[in-house]
Computed example of a mutant assay.
Amino acid sequence: MSDLAQPFASSNPLRARFDQLSVAGKLIALCAAAISLLLAIGFTIVTLQASSVVGRGSSETAEVTAERYASDIATDVNGIVGASHAMARSISTDLTATGFAPDRTVSQLRGFLASAPTVLGAWSILEPEYNRPELAGTTAYNVAGGFAPYVTRDKSGKINQQDASPPEDWQKDYYAQGLKRGAGRLSLPYSYPVDGKQVLMFSITFPLRRGDQVVGVSGFDISLDDLSAGLMKQKPLGSGRVRLIAQDGNWIAHENADMLMKPYDEGQKELIDAVIKTGTPQRFAHVAADGTQWARFAVPVTVSGIADRWAVVVDIPQAAITAPT
């Protein structure tokens, strides 16, 4: 051993012991060291893989949660769609078989509204051939004599009859497009006076038929404030949030009431548009104005028998997805 190596050997007892081992002993010691190193590397890899699996599992859970909310919303809306369709069929039966009777139509609106506790109002509008100028301004007829009765439910649950829908309603989306399409639809969101107060709402409408001819539209109105209030109670994975976008790209359920009926403008709008147009779910990262990082899941809400499609937007804090469980 050189003079330079001697001080090092004497100062390292492990090295000294190793030098004293037989060849077989040295081989055994080297194998043990190698196994220990491999175990340490393996443990590190397993830890990293486990972390990845936890993150992926949480992400998959969040995606399933988003899909569940979309399914729940569709189920709730489908129930209202069924009642709205039944109301239209009942009124159409009168128009076709038994003859038009204004009082009976108003009674039907009241009855179907009473059976749908989450609905704000029920209405029916008929084409001008049913106008009765001599009845203008009465309960079911507007100032031009158009038949357009409207009944609503107040906060106490009482059903009241509002003034008949004004003549300009014949040009509004909820009537004009419902008449043109001749099929069930979800109207675009709009503002309408109820009991002297402007209410944000959308309508679920169906055509009224006399035989094979479409002669009007009836519908149920749903308050956007009520819709938002219900969704705002939901906290996916404990700290998430749920919002809803209509077929025109505007918010119809949002924790900030000022955002209702405003367009989605939070980035990657093309992905939201894809959900609405093609029904393809999307997932992407979203950074809020306050710097919070969210995993955003946009899932289509498809209603049976209606072509219009919404998007439910479920945001989960990125920290909740990557946190170990």
Rank of each mutant, 00 (worst) to 15 (best):
V54N: 08
S203D: 14
A114L: 11
N142D: 15
T105E: 09
A70Q: 08
D94W: 03
T65E: 15
D76W: 11
I321A: 01
E266Q: 13
A323G: 01
G279I: 09
A319M: 09
Q161E: 12
K269E: 09
V301T: 06
Q171K: 14
A323P: 02
I91Q: 12
Q234R: 15
S304A: 12
P207Y: 13
A136K: 03
A116Y: 01
A274D: 14
G211I: 05
Q108K: 11
A101C: 04
W123F: 06
N256C: 02
E168I: 14
T278V: 13
E127R: 12
Y69T: 13
T325S: 10
G145S: 07
K158R: 15
A311P: 09
L186N: 11
C31L: 06
R243W: 03
F100S: 01
G305V: 13
P117G: 07
V77P: 09
L271P: 01
A74C: 04
S84W: 03
G178H: 04
W123M: 05
F8L: 15
A97N: 07
N250K: 12
V299L: 05
Y175M: 02
A298E: 11
D226Y: 02
S51I: 00
T152V: 08
D72R: 12
M259S: 08
G267H: 09
T44E: 01
N256K: 03
I245K: 05
D226P: 00
R56H: 08
D226E: 12
A140W: 13
N12A: 11
A62N: 05
G25S: 10
P167K: 08
G238S: 06
S165D: 06
L227E: 10
L224Q: 05
C31F: 03
L208T: 04
R132T: 14
A32S: 13
S36V: 03
I159N: 04
D3Q: 15
N250I: 04
W170C: 02
A101R: 14
L231G: 08
A34I: 11
Y192M: 06
Q20F: 03
L38A: 06
S84E: 10
Y264K: 07
P300W: 04
T278M: 07
L120N: 11
A285N: 10
V151M: 10
P207H: 12
R185H: 11
D258T: 04
G55N: 08
G211V: 06
G240E: 08
